[in-house]
Write a protein that binds this DNA or RNA. Structure first.
Length: 500
RNA sequence: GGUUCCGUGGCCGAGUGGCUAGGCUGAGCUCUGCAAAAGCUCCUACAGCGGUUCGAAUCCGCUCGGAACCUCCA
């Protein structure tokens, strides 16, 4: 029996607002699309949270034995400033401001994005398509929608006819809106006389003579609208209907709503079975965003240079911090919370190091103790299968860590466990820590010289303790502590150390 | 104004009808030459008011407070 049959995953589908049992379109396979970054600027921590959420989703599905095709795009054209149809292209604007080729902007920030993903141990997707690499497909689907009468050409641009679509489908199905309300509440924007209705959105935009990003099309030189790229790239690599579409909560409307409308209009089928939305990272209760000026850059966080931080935090501590809450809840970012997370993270990592070195004997062990270890192992699967509840899973891992420390200190003897129970426990703890949650040891910044020097001091301290020269042994320990190296005395004279 | 969500112990945060979440902090104990680490114990909460129910943090209503979306945003 496959793991995913034993621990079926339930997830909250934004489309229905309910928790549903996940059923793959093709048994054993998962197709997932996630809206990636627009590469016109540095990614901040709020962005990281979303990509972390779906990293966990992909990792867990794989861990359960699914074959996952995870597509996450790079938006390198078409994402407009201010308003989806009247503003300036974000990439083009940045390129103009910095006097760069658009592709220079794109390359620079794409690499920056990848570097940040690596630092947080967020695994790369299976396919990372870019919008500019799919101009033809975007033109084709736009033509398709025109042919079906669901789009219209206006002054060299092409717009999706929302009202027409709404006659046979529900525009607003995802965000719980109806077009009458939208017509009333939407803001009146300038330069929109090209559109028949203000809720219509651009599939293709005509390029002004000065616009630097442009492609020829049946409607003249121009560039694709924002929403269409995701429809094109998701269906191209995952099929007309695929399993999961993810993204940040703030993309639910209008972006994902438009994707549903376009996709459904083009193929006659709903594009996605399960919509997943990750909630926002907040600072003092407010959404972290570039426009509000309250965003943190990863490098500010690592170095501790942001005014709101007392010190720097490693990417793994931050990863742990984010995993302590459920992806569907907002998470408030604060110095205190981060400090607490750092300590908790170290506890789990310490236990990870310990259990890796432990081996159980073939002894039959005590039934009661063995049963508890097995129960904890299964709880990990149960909590993760319950809508990827990483917070609950961490709670189980903390219990497991306590048991590991018991084994280390001898409170529980390894011989009390039967071999299979211990093996399952060990495999589960390591698997959930590393493969599922992606928590690993922070990269040590020390080299061989430092390590050798510390080992020498430790040897001297051992000698001093054997000689009962506690003044000297304490001095070595205290002075190392001042340098940020914590020496711990174990039983039978062994010593370990860790960096703080 | 419309749509949606949230308000949990000193702090962060799970939890959607009955059973200890967990982490951090603080106090105590055990272990230790002393520490650290670790284990154990304690501090035990659900914004307010009303209702449903044998029973509610969990369902319903109202009030107060906060947030997101309706404009680019992960």
């Amino acid at each position: 029996m496959k793991l995913f049959e034993r621990y079926p995953v339930s997830l909250t589908n934004s489309l229905t607002g309910k928790k549903e049992i996940f059923k793959a379109i093709t048994p054993g396979f998962v197709g997932m699309y996630v809206c990636g970054p627009t590469v016109y600027n540095d990614v901040h921590l709020g962005n990281v949270r979303t990509f972390l959420t779906f990293d966990i989703v992909a990792r867990y599905f794989r861990f359960l034995g699914y074959k996952v095709r995870y597509v996450r795009n790079i938006t390198d054209v078409g994402h407009l400033e201010n308003d989806a149809d009247a503003g300036e292209d974000k990439i083009a604007k940045k390129a103009r401001l910095e006097q760069l080729e658009p592709m220079e902007v794109v390359k620079y920030y794409t690499e920056g994005f990848h570097e940040v993903m690596r630092q947080f141990n967020i695994l790369p997707p299976s396919i990372e398509p870019s919008a500019t690499g799919h101009i033809l497909e975007q033109i084709n689907i736009t033509q398709n929608l025109l042919d079906k009468g669901l789009a219209y050409v206006s002054n060299g641009s092409v717009y999706f006819n929302v009202r027409k679509y709404n006659q046979t489908h529900h525009y607003g199905i995802l965000s719980g809106r109806n077009i009458e309300e939208l017509m009333e509440s939407g803001r009146d924007l300038e330069n929109q006389d090209e559109k028949r209705e203000k809720i219509d959105f651009a599939l293709w935009k005509k390029a002004s003579p000065y616009h630097i990003m442009r492609w020829p099309s049946p409607w003249g030189d121009g560039f694709p609208g924002w929403h269409i790229e995701c429809t094109v790239m998701s269906t191209k690599y995952l099929g007309e209907t695929f399993d999961i579409h993810g993204g940040g909560m703030d993309l639910k409307f209008p972006h994902h709503e438009c994707e549903i409308a376009q996709g459904t209009a083009a193929t006659g089928k709903p594009p996605v079975n399960y919509w997943l939305h990750s909630n926002m990272l907040t600072v003092n209760g407010q959404k972290m965003s570039k426009s509000l000026g309250n965003s943190f850059l990863p490098r500010e966080l690592f170095a501790g240079t942001h005014p709101l931080l007392d010190k720097g935090y490693g990417p793994m501590a931050v990863r742990f911090f984010m995993l302590q809450s459920h992806y569907s809840s907002t998470l408030d970012f604060s110095n205190e919370a981060l400090q607490a997370a750092e300590k908790g993270y170290k506890k789990l990592i310490n236990a990870l190091g310990l259990i890796k070195k432990m081996e159980a004997g073939p002894a039959p062990g005590k039934a009661e103790t063995s049963a508890e270890f097995v129960r904890l192992s299964r709880d990990c699967y149960q909590t993760m299968s319950d809508d990827f509840n990483t917070a609950k899973t961490l709670a189980v891992l903390f219990e497991m860590a306590a048991r590991i420390n018991d084994l280390k200190s001898g409170n529980t003897k390894l011989t009390e466990l039967d071999g299979t129970a211990f093996a399952e426990f060990k495999e589960t703890y390591i698997g959930f820590m590393e493969a599922v949650l992606g928590l690993q040891e922070e990269k040590e910044q020390n080299d061989g010289t430092l390590k050798g020097t510390i080992d020498l001091l430790i040897d001297l301290r051992k000698k001093a303790r054997t000689d009962k020269n506690f003044a000297l042994s304490d001095k070595i320990r205290d002075d190392l502590k001042k340098l940020g190296i914590q020496v711990k005395d174990g039983k039978d004279g062994e010593m370990t150390y860790s960096f703080e």
